[in-house]
Simulated scan of single mutants.
Amino acid sequence: MIKILKLQKAVIILILGVIAFVVYIVMYNREVENSIYALEVAGLLFMVGALMMLYPILFSKKDGQGTVQLNPEKHGEEDTEGTEEIVETKNP
């Protein structure tokens, strides 16, 4: 599902947020003065990752039946449903 919705970047950003939070915990336990900056970076990464995960949902495309199409690769293709190709046949 992650590959279909193209959320790899959001997942990577969330993982970086977790790593930044672990860095904050280590710095806080060692009583480093500037540990708050690591916490701010972790929070920023979590917020950006969450917004990137919402992107496909917010900009999804509705089709004729009212259902939502969440596959961004198909957004550029034209809707060919309902069009029929006319084939001429010759009687022998």
Rank of each mutant, 00 (worst) to 15 (best):
M1G: 02
I2V: 07
I4G: 01
L7E: 03
L7Y: 01
K9Y: 07
A10Y: 02
A10C: 09
V11H: 14
I12N: 12
I13F: 06
I13R: 05
I15T: 15
I15Q: 15
I15Y: 12
V18T: 14
V18Q: 15
I19M: 15
A20R: 00
A20Q: 01
F21M: 12
V22F: 08
V23Y: 03
V23A: 09
Y24C: 12
I25M: 06
I25Q: 11
M27P: 01
Y28I: 02
R30P: 00
R30N: 08
S35E: 05
S35Y: 02
Y37I: 15
A38Q: 10
A38H: 12
L39V: 09
E40G: 13
V41F: 05
A42K: 03
G43F: 02
L44Y: 06
F46E: 01
M47N: 01
G49A: 12
M52T: 02
L54E: 04
Y55N: 04
I57M: 07
S60D: 11
K61P: 08
K61S: 14
D63F: 07
Q65E: 15
L70I: 02
L70R: 02
L70E: 05
N71R: 10
N71H: 11
H75P: 00
G76R: 06
E78Q: 14
D79T: 08
E81C: 07
E81D: 13
E81S: 15
T83H: 13
T83E: 11
I86G: 04
I86V: 10
I86D: 06
I86A: 10
I86N: 07
T89I: 11
N91P: 03
P92T: 13
